[in-house]
């Protein structure tokens, strides 16, 4: 048996293991889920409100990540500032932080006894236990995914093309939409998809910072965890439904790659 053949075998074996690690739990979930009770489950008010809230919260978190993340990514990719390496590391920290710790960190900042909590309290704003808190928690953990993918897209985009556009009379705004946007679009969409998926699955930071109240802060992952206590089968089904929706959304975004 040649060495090359062995190497190839090793490669396939490792890849198969990797695939199995992803697919087997998902398959287990799909097989165990009592699909027949889907309709009944979807008629439960708590489930409906969790679904609605989850889409609202993850959507808002993705939008917020874009609004706050784009300027940051621009700064990192296009502006020369001192300490950029440190800034970049700082911005990706939420990715390695355990989500519960992220929640505690948010409380330490915006909680009633946190750094900014007293000032917020003075103007009548209490963030914990609000839907906004759930949005902030999801944004905190998911924005780095969008920022890193945008930053590398901006680094790869040719500045010279934007200069050419300017020399042809394009305002920075016009050149942004007609020249930069088409070139970063695939990375932007991929980043948005990742960011949204992470926000949709967010659990630890949300329960810690925002709590768990139906209709206000109980997103799907929290509802699933709570259902697991009383109706494990329903929790499985809801988890499987979340999976299906995520796959559909991610696949539709992936399909948006422009033709070469």
């Amino acid at each position: 048996m040649s060495l090359r053949w062995l190497q190839l075998l090793g490669l396939y074996a490792a890849a198969a293991l990797g695939l199995a690690l992803t697919l087997v739990p998902l398959a287990g979930l799909s097989i165990r889920a009592p699909w027949a009770s889907t309709l009944e489950l979807l008629q439960m008010p708590s489930v409906r409100s969790a679904i609605g809230l989850s889409f609202a919260v993850s959507g808002a978190a993705t939008l917020l990540s874009l609004l706050l993340g784009f300027p940051l990514a621009w700064l990192l990719a296009r502006v020369s500032i001192p300490g950029k390496r440190w800034l970049r590391t700082l911005l990706t920290l939420p990715l390695v932080l355990p989500p519960v710790v992220a929640g505690v960190a948010l409380l330490a900042a915006f909680g009633r006894y946190g750094l900014l909590g007293a000032s917020l309290d003075a103007v009548g704003i209490r963030l914990p236990f609000t839907t906004l808190a759930a949005v902030l928690a999801a944004t905190f953990v998911s924005a780095p995914l969008l920022i890193t993918s945008l930053e590398s897209a901006l680094l790869q985009a040719e500045v010279r093309l934007e200069q050419v556009a300017a020399s042809l009379g394009a305002s920075p705004w016009h050149s942004f939409w007609t020249v930069l946007m088409p070139s970063i679009r695939p990375a932007l969409l991929a980043g948005l998809a990742l960011c949204w998926a992470r926000a949709l699955g967010e659990f630890g930071a949300t329960i810690t910072f925002a709590g768990n109240l139906e209709g206000r802060t109980q997103t799907l992952p929290l509802a699933i965890y709570q259902l697991l206590q009383s109706r494990p089968e329903a929790a499985l089904l809801l988890g499987a439904l979340l999976l299906v929706v995520s796959v559909l959304v991610l696949a539709s975004l992936r399909g948006h790659r422009p033709a070469p």
């Binding site: 010279r160 050419v164 020399s167 394009a170 007609t178 070139s183």
Partner: peptide, 19 residues
């Protein structure tokens, strides 16, 4: 600013918009 200068510039490397 560049966009207000009445020049027609052809840059080295051409830089056509690929999309």
């Amino acid at each position: 600013p560049p966009q207000l200068r009445p020049f027609g510039v052809m840059f080295q490397g051409l830089w056509l918009f690929p999309h």
